[in-house]
Amino acid sequence: MTPKHPEIIVTLPGHDGNAFTVLGRCRQAARAAGLPEDEIDAFTDEATADD
């Protein structure tokens, strides 16, 4: 799969690896990059759709 926004880098050192922590960091990075909220919500929906 090709990343949709390869310019957005999410660093996770020092975090516990909890899925909700990772998802929150991704959402923060997307907001900081200026993505529209509907695109961020679509990412969240896709990321939480399956196990």
Rank of each mutant, 00 (worst) to 15 (best):
T48N: 01
G24P: 00
A29E: 08
A32V: 02
T2K: 02
L12H: 06
A30V: 02
D41A: 15
E7G: 10
R31D: 08
P13N: 00
A33F: 05
A29M: 02
T11L: 10
G34W: 13
P13L: 00
D16V: 01
H5E: 14
D51I: 13
L35I: 12
L23H: 05
A42G: 00
D50H: 14
G14T: 05
R27M: 12
F43R: 03
I40Q: 12
G24N: 13
T44A: 13
P36N: 14
D51C: 14
I9L: 06
A32C: 03
I40W: 14
T21S: 03
V22Y: 15
Q28L: 08
A19G: 10
A49L: 10
D50G: 14
R31Y: 09
E37R: 00
T2R: 02
M1F: 09
P3H: 04
T11W: 02
P13S: 00
A30K: 06
F43Y: 14
A29H: 04
A42K: 07
C26K: 05
T11H: 02
A29K: 01
G14D: 14
P6H: 04
V22W: 13
F20C: 08
H15C: 05
L12N: 06
R31C: 02
E39N: 07
G17C: 12
D45A: 13
A19Y: 13
A42F: 03
I40R: 04
P13C: 00
E37T: 12
N18V: 11
D41R: 09
